[in-house]
């Protein structure tokens, strides 16, 4: 192996491999938090199913996610 450094806890800083904020930990699901910006009017939101343009994902038959 090219890397001859032993992979032991002594060579690892305490933070390495642990939490690096809420979008870096293994074995955990994350969703990007919504940042509120522009909204549609209530009437338009009712027609579309959401007042948030960033969450609008219209479907057409034949589409695959």
């Amino acid at each position: 192996m090219a890397d001859t450094k032993p992979n032991t806890p002594n060579n690892t800083s305490p933070q390495e491999g642990e939490t690096t904020g809420y979008f870096g930990e293994l074995a955990r699901a994350y969703i990007v938090p919504q940042m509120y910006s522009r909204i549609w009017s209530p009437a338009e939101g009712l027609m579309k199913g959401t007042i948030f343009p960033e969450l609008y994902r219209p479907y057409e038959p034949g589409m695959r996610p």
Binding site: Q34, G49, L55, R57, P58, Y59
Partner: peptide, 24 residues
């Protein structure tokens, strides 16, 4: 059906944000 489908997407986002809060 399109309206109901879009609500599922919004709810997915809300549950995901709630999961973040619960982890926090």
């Amino acid at each position: 059906l399109r309206f109901l489908r879009e609500r599922e997407i919004v709810h997915f986002q809300r549950f995901g944000e709630t999961l973040n809060l619960v982890h926090e």
